[in-house]
Design a protein around this nucleic acid. Sequence first.
DNA 1: TAGATTGTTAATCGATTAACAATC
DNA 2: TAGATTGTTAATCGATTAACAATC
Lengths: 231, 231
Amino acid sequence: MGVRRTSGRDGVRRAAREAQAVPHATVGRLPGYLRALEETAADGAVLTSSDELAARAGVTPAQLRKDLSFLGSYGRRGVGYDVGHLREQITVALGLADVRRVLLVGVGNLGHALANYAGIAERGFVLVGLVDADPAVVGTTVAGLVVEPAADLAAVVARTGATIAVLTTPAAVAQRVCDELVAAGVVGVLTFAPCALRVPPHVDVRAVDVASELQILAFHDRARSVGGGVS
Amino acid sequence: MGVRRTSGRDGVRRAAREAQAVPHATVGRLPGYLRALEETAADGAVLTSSDELAARAGVTPAQLRKDLSFLGSYGRRGVGYDVGHLREQITVALGLADVRRVLLVGVGNLGHALANYAGIAERGFVLVGLVDADPAVVGTTVAGLVVEPAADLAAVVARTGATIAVLTTPAAVAQRVCDELVAAGVVGVLTFAPCALRVPPHVDVRAVDVASELQILAFHDRARSVGGGVS
DNA sequence: TAGATTGTTAATCGATTAACAATC
DNA sequence: TAGATTGTTAATCGATTAACAATC
């Protein structure tokens, strides 16, 4: 920890080392930059600037340049950024150079919707398996995949080589399923279950809780009506 | 801005003033604390501690106490926190004392799933309207509500008094719909569309992008395989 | 050369952590 | 009183911002 900025020779090894040092907050914004670059590319532009890209991504140009500087120096002063090249660099930085295999556990309403969500396949992932505990759902085909029983979870992970899982089970079973996923070798979990998940340090959890998001919006809504309305 | 800690007399007025000063990061964790308290209450406990509550919420006890201190002094030294009372205080702080009205725009796969998501109603919100642009969907009943046409959006906001909207439209129309929502008086937007939304300063946006979340997981996955595996 | 735009530095700001005095 | 646990302080840490030198 605390790798101090050196004068900066040896290119490749530096890039590899620095990847470790990309701040969390920056990593969280990289997907937005990638999205912005894809929009720019779709418009046919070959070159872009921190001003344009930042505007598209909804951040300040200073923030964007700072963030990109953690990945390397991929722009040209006085000129801007090559859209295709920067896109490639961010793709590599995010680990999307090769497609990641995703397993979805819990094929209820939400799981069903996510399985059919095109954005997943379009942005570097393949859905490789579906698992559910409900016998009425097991065996049905969703998004081109046959739903497999919860009892086979470990086997499905092993067979598919999934490293990332999407968890859309009821909260009551989320921790148990998560433990099984981790034991089977999954290292990233995106959970929609409204409960905290405990995982070992080598596993990464991202939690999306729709009700929590609404509650955060409610706070600001309230603050607006109660407070004097300053800014 | 920058209200300096005063010696701390006058209780009620202070609570109201300080609500303005709750840090963003703290606000983001309050829903988790509320959830943890609800679990604790369900277990029949009347009293809890920062240790227990923090464990349930997945944070450190120091973090939890610091966060709660921004709301006021609702615990008793040497004793702990009264579950019901703290729950009430956080509920009030989040602006959930009275139910917030939510409008959902975009009744596709995901919108359908969210409309039927029980967690929304259970945690302080009422779904008051559904809007979609597709004539095949308009007029159908989902989650007990009749889907209304996109052309009536402003009228639906006015009639229902919705202040918060959930946006599950395609990215291509998200900004336009968002503008209409804001013009109609909505002050909080939870969007699932994979694009940055521009809103005036008095409006709050929370964005959930499933593919972005997966990409963030991919980054850590990659860092794990490339890096030496330090921590 | 003049104008444009990056990459980096340094200053500021906000969040987290740890320790402990207050107090039940 | 002794033990427990909060609420607060101060130190640390990380993130953001703004300005500008480097350089195309």
